[in-house]
Design a protein around this nucleic acid. Structure first.
Lengths: 229, 229
DNA sequence: GTCTATAGGGGGATAGAC
DNA sequence: GTCTATCCCCCTATAGAC
């Protein structure tokens, strides 16, 4: 039963998070700063995070950010790289050769898992979420380095699914609609104080997968109908 | 043909925007400040908008914001009320008695129209967009005053569509997924520099409607299947 | 009502002692 | 490497002249 598989994956994830321990702050001051900064940037974004907060969390002096990283901005970029590595540790890359539907299912499950994991594995999607909706001066750099590749993957998979009749604009629109589920998950995580257990997450995942694939299928029918006129 | 109807609605809208003229800044200093502030808050959010910018745009002195509105925060609240009124002028409230599918179609069309209109009619959804993704200290107040009602409307319509088997959590998840199209539209508006004409907007609207209703239908089937086990 | 000048706070960054 | 003290900039808000 597919639902049970998803649920078990979430339960497994909880175990892994605990065994790794979220207190893996690193030992040196530099590591502690990077780790703490990453968490703060992920939850508050670049602007709302101050150097003071970072140093307080890392038990370091106010001047150490500039000593080790040169500036708050360079630390921010370093945090992105760090978060991307952590996210890959929790959940490796998804098999590119999967057919579009399966690939989308996997991506949805992985992202929801990341989003709702309280651990460092969830920081990367949170960074993305914050940067997209509250652009810093590093937006272009960050998009080019970390996001373009993912977006292109989405485009390829959706294009393959929709068929050759779909125009680039239609593909773009569809991808945007699909990726809308990520802020959605972020919203549910942030504002609804409800604590979701692995059952809820499995259901949320299943429903989101169903919604996305159902929507996409309808769009495909629409495109084909219009093309055959 | 439904597609043509949508397209004509967009063309009409462009005419209306032009006839009203976006230079309706008001005459008194107070009105000019309110109008300019509203536009800036809509495009940049509360934090990133400074009193200096507002006064520059309104051709007013730096001290006049506090003279007329007491503080930047009170001006922000006033701007929300103002934007809500402007949005209603462009597009009156949607008929509550419509069946869920038609209601959702109308909402999608209206929101996309608002989002992509460069005029004051689009400021309200932009304010929402910014406040949700970059909360100010006025978040709770603004949500209570302007947003709770809309969210509840969505909940009712979606609950009616999904049927009595749907749990509150399932309804919430579905509504969140649906409302994800709004940030999506915001993204397309902001980052893709492409200028969309009324044809593009009509197509975007149609595709988004199809996507949402297709997704919702699939979710309904899923819920009914699970309930009948 | 409108203006200038300034207070008061907070942020990032750096010099220089240890 | 770590710390304190300080600089400089930008923000909001207000006092007081006109």
């Amino acid at each position: 039963m597919y639902f049970l598989e998803i649920k078990q994956a979430f339960e497994m994830d909880i175990l892994i998070q605990h065994s790794k321990g979220t207190s893996d702050n690193g030992s040196t001051t530099e590591e502690k700063i990077l780790h703490g900064a990453c968490e703060l940037f992920a939850h508050q974004g670049f602007q709302d995070t101050t150097v003071q907060q970072i140093c307080r969390k890392a038990d370091a002096n106010i001047a150490s950010v500039n000593y080790y990283f040169g500036s708050k901005g360079k630390l921010y970029i370093a945090a992105w790289t760090y978060a991307a590595r952590l996210a890959e540790e929790v959940d490796g890359p998804i098999d590119e050769s999967l057919p579009p539907e399966e690939w989308l299912r996997s991506v949805v499950q992985q992202r929801i898992k990341m989003m709702f994991s309280d651990g460092p594995g969830g920081w990367f999607p949170l960074l993305i979420h914050n940067e997209i909706h509250n652009q810093s001066v590093y937006f272009d750099e960050v998009v080019k380095t970390f996001l373009v590749r993912v977006r292109k993957q989405f485009n390829r998979k959706v294009a393959a699914y929709l068929g050759p009749e779909a125009t680039p604009f239609q593909i773009e629109s569809a991808v945007s609609a699909i990726m809308g589920f990520m802020p959605m998950a972020g919203q549910m995580r942030h504002h609804q104080k409800l604590q979701l257990d692995s059952d809820d997450l499995a259901q949320l995942t299943r429903q989101t997968q169903t919604y996305i694939l159902g929507g996409l299928k309808a769009v495909k029918r629409l495109i084909q109908k219009e093309a055959s006129r």
